[in-house]
Amino acid sequence: MIMKWLHKFSSPPYFYALSGKLIKWLSVLLVAFLAAGLYGGLVLAPADYQQGDSFRIIYVHVPAAWMSLFIYMVMAVSGTIALVWRIKLAEIVSVCSPPIGAGFTFLALVTGSIWGKPMWGTWWVWDARLTSELILLFLYLGLIGLYTAIEDKRTASRSVAILALVGVVNIPIIHYSVEWWNTLHQGPTVTKFDKPSIHIDMLIPLLNMAIAFKLYFAIALLMRSRNELLQREQNGRWVEEVLEGK
């Protein structure tokens, strides 16, 4: 049954129409979760005893950091599926994800350094998490650069899938070596960059924001995939009806 559904789902016209509807529904959910998360985080959650209100940046920084890794995983998995089973849809997902991932990584970096400023007085701190995030940004830029540099779309998406696969093997190694490097040079300082003791009122908004960001990723991915599909199948007959419909 699953294969039948998967096959039906992956036929371009069906996917194009379905994703159109999905985007509308998901955006409603996105607004709901975003509102809940922001209201909870900015208003309800008590200020942190140590960092005061500046800790509220956590509601953007941490979900963004989670998303930057999550999207890389999604990209690597869909890239592998595209490489091994040649499923066109998986290929499109693995190709449309890097720009969104890069956006979230950039966001995590910027909000991280803004959050660090009041605490340490400098915009950039060679903290393990921020450094790993910076390296992850380079990986995303590499993927985007590689995809745009290769003309033929099919080879480009397969090359990106390979680089993503190599990346996903290396990310844990890079993360732990940076962590290890950080403890080596910085030593046990008090400005450990971990989250303040999480109080239940603080945690709920964080989860809402995390779900909101995942919904956002789904919407952005669907939008980009529809576009990519349209470009790849522009000679397809079903594109005809789409043009009339619009």
Partner: peptide, 17 residues
């Protein structure tokens, strides 16, 4: 293309460290 390959340098980080 060559400049693009530089973007694999992040994978050199563990070795360097």
């Amino acid at each position: 293309g060559v400049m693009l390959a530089l973007l694999i340098l992040p994978f050199y980080v563990p070795v360097l460290i």
